[in-house]
Structure formats: structure tokens, C-alpha cells
């Protein structure tokens, strides 16, 4: 590369990176600062606020609703990761067979993922309506339930309901990523295995799965990151209720900050989410690097 071109390239690099550091990096740092301060509506405008050490964190950890929401988040994210990968892989395998229209039909599924998350939440709130909703009508007509299920107002079921909606929303994206990796597996591997007498199950176990390990790990990281940020969908469906039954960390943090104006507490809750996504992002970046090398 000619030296003459370098200065412009550095300017090109600096502009977007500076933008992101200013608009994401700085807020993340500022969140950490607020989490060790006493921030309320009175002092939010001034930059000088009392530092109170880890008091916010102590208060958060002592709060039973935080523990409940923390466990909810783990369940919500965990079930999403497993379900999106298992369903996504199955669907991708189905479409990897050669039949007319396979590519087009597979791509169409992505329509669900393209919708704004808030609209997806509104739509599933309507589907899960107790009295006139589609879900209860379908289940009763199939004879699976006797009376209408209170999908969103029963504290035992609400988390399941928002999880189902989020799996529907996110699965097509996971599936498309897995499908792309499936296509990249060399045909010769399967041909050689078939000649050696390997059956379909053996080929899946010894060729498909090992070839997909890196991709599945990357997809698991991405689903974790995307699910950890789920806000719109749950906010539209249940607002985290009833009684925090379907609440997750970002939503709880938002409620403390913008509904109770306890900004310090909200920021401390935010830190927990930051740590989780940060660790997952490290794994993700490492996976990408390994793949780039190999």
C-alpha cells in the first residue's frame, strides 16, 4: 500500500471509532460512575454528586426483586440460546436439502426478524390475549386446554410467554447464520463418509456437528447479546409484570432510573448486565479471530 494514502485512511478510521467511543464507550463509563454515586432528580444536572462507594450495589443485592429478575434473565437468555440453536439448526438442516424454492423459502422466514421488536411485542400480546386471543382459541379447539390460559397475567406463565415470543422473533436470524455455515461444509467430506458406510446419524455426529462448533458458539454468543438487550418486546407485552414475573435486567434498570428516579440503583443493575455481555462479547471476538485464522 502506497504511503501517500495512509493519512486519509487514518482519518477515515478515526471518525467512526471516535463516534462510537463517545456515544457508547463514554455512557458505559458514566454508568459505572453513577453506580457508585447517590444520584437523584435533585442532583442529576450537576456533575458533582456524593460518592457512596458500593452502597447501591449492596442495596441492589439485598433487594429480593433483583434476585428474582436476575434468575429470570438467566432463564430467558438460556432458554432462548438453547431453543434458537436447536430449532435453528433443525430448520437449517431441513432447508439444506436440495428442493425447488429452498433458498427463497428459508429467506422468507427472516421476515419475522425484520419486524420492529415493539410491534412483535404488541402482536404477541394480542395473540396471547386471554379472552379473544389466537393462542387460547387454537389450544381449546385442539382440546389441549379446557379454559383460557392467562398467558400474560399469570405470574407462573408470563416469563414462558415472553420467551416464546422472543424465540419466534430471533430464531430466523440464528437459523440463517447456521445455514450459511452448513453450506460451507465441503461436500467431499460427506461423500467420503458415505463411501465408508457412515449413516445419516453418523455423518451428522462426526461431520456436521464438529464443522459447526465455531459457528454454533458464535451464534450462542450473539443470541445471548441480543436477548440480554430485549426490552421493547417485554415492555410491550407485560412491562415485566405481573410482580416482576417476566422482568429482565435492562428493564428493571430502566424502571429504577426512569420510573422511580433512583438513577444510582438503575446504574448498579446496569453494571451486572454490562459484565455479562462484556464476557460473552470477549468469547465472541475470540471465536471470530480463531475462525479468521483457520
Amino acid at each position: 500500500m502506497a504511503k501517500a494514502q495512509q493519512p486519509l485512511l487514518y482519518v477515515f478510521l478515526a471518525i467512526p471509532v471516535t463516534y462510537l467511543v463517545a456515544l457508547i464507550g463514554f455512557p458505559v463509563f458514566y454508568n459505572l460512575v453513577m453506580s457508585v454515586q447517590d444520584v437523584n432528580l435533585g442532583n442529576i444536572s450537576s456533575m458533582i454528586r456524593p460518592f457512596i462507594g458500593l452502597d447501591n450495589y449492596r442495596e441492589v443485592i439485598a433487594d429480593p426483586s433483583f434476585r428474582k429478575v436476575f434468575i429470570n434473565s438467566i432463564l430467558f437468555v438460556g432458554v432462548n440460546v438453547v431453543a434458537q440453536i436447536v430449532i435453528g439448526l433443525s430448520v437449517a438442516l431441513f432447508f439444506s436439502r436440495e428442493f425447488p424454492g429452498a433458498g427463497l423459502l428459508r429467506g422468507l422466514l427472516l421476515a419475522a426478524w425484520m419486524l420492529p421488536a415493539l410491534v412483535v411485542g404488541a402482536l404477541w400480546k394480542w395473540i396471547f390475549a386471554t379472552e379473544y386471543g389466537l393462542a387460547n382459541a387454537a389450544l381449546t379447539s385442539l382440546g389441549l386446554v379446557d379454559a383460557g390460559v392467562h398467558w400474560l397475567s399469570d405470574p407462573r406463565i408470563a416469563l414462558t410467554s415472553v420467551t416464546i415470543a422472543n424465540i419466534w422473533f430471533g430464531m430466523p436470524f440464528s437459523m440463517i447464520l447456521i445455514a450459511a455455515a452448513l453450506i460451507a461444509i465441503p461436500r467431499e467430506l460427506y461423500e467420503a463418509a458415505a463411501l465408508d458406510g457412515a449413516g445419516a446419524v453418523a455423518r451428522f455426529r462426526y461431520i456436521t456437528l464438529p464443522s459447526l462448533t465455531a459457528t454454533l458458539l458464535a451464534v450462542a454468543c450473539l443470541v445471548t447479546i441480543y436477548t440480554m438487550r430485549a426490552f421493547d418486546l417485554i415492555y410491550a407485552m407485560t412491562q415485566g409484570g405481573p410482580l416482576d414475573a417476566s422482568n429482565v435486567l435492562p428493564l428493571l434498570s430502566y424502571q429504577f432510573s426512569f420510573q422511580q428516579f433512583k438513577f444510582g440503583i438503575g446504574s448498579a443493575i446496569g453494571t451486572f448486565s454490562f459484565v455479562i455481555v462484556f464476557v460473552v462479547a470477549l468469547v465472541y471476538v475470540r471465536t471470530l479471530k480463531k475462525e479468521a485464522v483457520s
Binding site: 467511543v21 457508547i24 458505559v28 446504574s267 465472541y284
Partner: peptide
């Protein structure tokens, strides 16, 4: 930087 949830960046 792309991984941080918006709802948490909203306060700062």
C-alpha cells in the same frame, strides 16, 4: 461496543 443494551445506555 456493539453489545451494550440500549435500555442501559439510555440513562447516561
Amino acid at each position: 461496543l456493539q453489545v451494550f443494551p440500549e435500555a442501559l445506555l439510555a440513562t447516561p
